[in-house]
């Protein structure tokens, strides 16, 4: 294969104001400018977005599924971070 394969980009689309950008998918492009344009053509051709980010896939660092336990399980035993942990007398409002 050619050594000129275009790199892969991850595409994030903001569907409307007030929402954050959400991962939409990926595509190939030679550079960021073309990646943005390709993303516009591919992921917003049915008016799905008002703003786009593109990120080289190689620039993303991801947590490893193998570390899932140490990364995410410790959060599970801290119920006091959630409002439902606290008992409030009935009738008290706006709390």
């Amino acid at each position: 294969m050619s050594t000129h394969d275009w790199p892969l980009w991850e595409v994030f689309v903001r569907s409307r104001r007030g929402l954050s950008h959400t991962h939409a998918g990926s595509l190939h492009a030679p550079d960021a400018e073309m990646a943005l344009r390709n993303a516009r053509d591919l992921y917003t051709r049915r008016s799905e977005g008002i703003s786009i980010w593109v990120v080289p896939s190689s620039a993303i660092s991801a947590s490893s599924p193998d570390e899932k336990d140490s990364f995410f399980d410790p959060a599970a035993d801290k119920p006091y971070r959630h409002p439902t942990f606290y008992e409030i007398p009935e009738g008290v409002k706006h709390l």
Binding site: S2, H4, D5, W6, P30, D31, M34
Partner: peptide, 15 residues
């Protein structure tokens, strides 16, 4: 299309 893909890749490298 190979020459087109190569051209865009070459341009990206130059930039």
């Amino acid at each position: 299309g190979a020459w087109v893909r190569d051209a865009a890749a070459a341009y990206a490298t130059k930039q």
